[in-house]
Design a binder for these strands. Structure first.
Length: 355
DNA sequence: CAACCGTGGTC
DNA sequence: TGACCAAGGTT
């Protein structure tokens, strides 16, 4: 008879019982009832969802997940896709290195693993775009292996459960130790999803719903009244503001002048408008050579956009150009082959402003 | 290891 | 309105 509220098995049982009732429905998830009946998830769908979910909300991911799995139902389908098609489908989701690594990973799985994701944390970790969290998530959720997931949710839940005041990211090894001690050998996949669901719905960053938490009794931070202020984090650097210019050339037949950005760096591999570098200070209007000679007209207003580490103010020029115009940079793309939704958001904002 | 890498929602 | 936040990974 276990009567210690801090016993790891008592804690994992409590959250699994909560998960059995409150598991959120997601397109990639096998509900706990089905899972207990022996149904296993499709590792391809778990992998795809986990990559999409990196630093991205469930609500945002859902429609992208549906688009990808409808167009590419298996990892072999995705591996055979054209790079540009995958980048276009990913447009708007952000962190575009994920899409490039997604393709690399799919092709590696097909070529080196016979089209089957390895059921092994260390092997998963070797694949592009799969780090410690994602490898643990795939191993536990897709294969029900005992691996410890440590994402932002679990960090917050562990920091509160154990009242850890050391700020992130320094506290990460401590929180991993706490999380690992709680991970059960039975139903590790459901457990992983349960802790993350708990963090997403009850143990939220602000105003946690401690009153209905399955771990309210053993939670140290709740007892101390410190839960809402945890986890502590080291302050972030202020974002500088940069300025840039883009050129939107529309040919007489409706084609637009676009360029594919280099694979490395910001918006790597994505479609965009030719333009200047984006610079920190000084010139409100950075000089850049237009991609072709034309009567360039500065559009009223500006595009404002915030990236991870800087604000951007983008000035937009537009011109009509003749058939036969030879641009110095980029290529004209026929109107029928161009959708604004193929653009990353900042470029789509420039398009919207110029319309 | 700290910097880099998107975006939309929330308060 | 602006800062914070989200199922992080790579270099």
């Amino acid at each position: 008879m276990r009567d210690n509220a801090n016993d790891p098995l008592v804690l994992s049982d409590a959250i699994l019982a909560w998960y059995d009732v409150h598991a959120r429905n997601m397109p990639w998830r096998v509900p706990p009832q089905n899972r207990r009946a022996g149904q296993m998830p499709d590792p391809y769908r778990i992998w795809l969802s986990e990559v999409m979910l990196q630093q991205t909300t469930v609500a945002t991911v859902k429609s992208y997940f549906e688009k990808f799995t409808t167009r590419w139902p298996t990892v072999r389908d995705l591996a055979a896709a054209k790079d540009a098609d995958v980048m276009a489908e990913w447009a708007g989701l952000g962190y575009y290195a994920r899409a490039r690594n997604l393709l690399k990973c799919a092709r590696t799985v097909v070529q080196d693993y016979g089209g089957a994701f390895p059921a092994d944390h260390a092997e998963l970790l070797k694949l592009p775009g799969i780090g410690p969290y994602t490898a643990a998530a795939i191993a536990s959720i897709a294969f029900d292996l005992r691996q410890t997931v440590l994402d932002g949710n679990v960090e917050r839940v562990m920091a509160r459960l154990h009242d850890v005041h050391v700020p992130l990211p320094a506290s990460k090894p401590i929180l991993m130790e706490k999380a690992d001690a709680l991970t059960p050998a039975d139903r590790p996949g459901d457990y992983a999803q349960a802790v993350m669901d708990l963090g997403a719905t009850i143990c939220t960053p602000k105003s946690p719903a401690c009153g209905i938490c399955p771990w309210r009794d053993p939670c140290t931070a709740r007892a101390e009244g410190t839960a809402a202020g945890l986890p502590k984090k080291t302050p972030k650097k202020a974002k500088p503001t940069r300025h840039g210019t883009v050129f939107l050339a529309r040919r007489a037949d409706g084609a637009w002048l676009l360029e594919t950005r280099p694979d490395k760096g910001l918006l790597g591999g994505m479609l965009g408008w030719p333009g200047s570098d984006w610079i920190d200070v000084g010139h409100p209007l950075p000089e850049a050579p237009p991609p072709c000679a034309a009567e360039w007209q500065l559009i009223d207003g500006e595009v404002r956009h915030t990236f991870t580490h800087f604000h951007l103010i983008l000035h937009v020029f537009r011109a009509q150009v003749a058939i036969g115009t030879k641009p110095e940079t980029g290529e004209f793309r026929d109107a029928a082959e161009f959708k604004p939704t193929d653009l990353p958001t900042v470029m789509r904002k420039a398009f919207d402003l110029a319309r």
